[in-house]
C-alpha cells in the first residue's frame, strides 16, 4: 500500500472515527457519539417536536401556548435553555475525558 517506506508489522496507524482501535480511543469515541446524539436531539429534535405538535401553519400549538418563567415555551427552550445545555455538554465531555486520561497508564 505504501511502497516508499517499510512498514513494521507490529505497528498500525489506522485512525478511523467509526473503527476506534485503542481502548482509550474507543471509550472517547463512545463519549463523543453520546454527546453528538444529545446535541442533535436537543437542537434539531426540539424543532421537530414543534413541527409535530403544531396546529397551525405558523407553528402555533400546545408548545407555544404554554410559557415558562414568563417566556413563551419555544422561545425559552431554544433561546435560553439550549445554550445552557451546550455548556453542560461541554462540561460532561471535559470531565469524562479528564477521567479517561487519568485512568490511562502513562506513555512516552
Amino acid at each position: 500500500m505504501i511502497p516508499d517506506e517499510p512498514q513494521r508489522p507490529s505497528e498500525d496507524f489506522r485512525v478511523n472515527f467509526f473503527r476506534p482501535r485503542s481502548d482509550y480511543m474507543r471509550r472517547k469515541v463512545h463519549t463523543i457519539w453520546g454527546l453528538l446524539a444529545a446535541w442533535a436531539l436537543l437542537t434539531f429534535g426540539f424543532q421537530g417536536l414543534l413541527v409535530l405538535s403544531a396546529e397551525e401553519v405558523s407553528g402555533d400549538g400546545p408548545l407555544t401556548r404554554i410559557s415558562l418563567l414568563g417566556i413563551p415555551f419555544h422561545h425559552w427552550f431554544t433561546g435560553q435553555f439550549l445554550i445552557l445545555c451546550f455548556i453542560l455538554l461541554c462540561y460532561i465531555f471535559n470531565t469524562r475525558v479528564d477521567r479517561l486520561t487519568r485512568t490511562q497508564p502513562k506513555r512516552k
Binding site: L35, L36, W39, T43, T78, L82, F86, L89, C90, N94
Partner: peptide, 12 residues
C-alpha cells in the same frame, strides 16, 4: 443556536 452550538462540535 448556530453560533453557540458550533462550539460543542468544535470541542468534542
Amino acid at each position: 443556536i448556530g453560533w453557540t452550538g458550533g462550539y460543542v462540535l468544535l470541542l468534542i
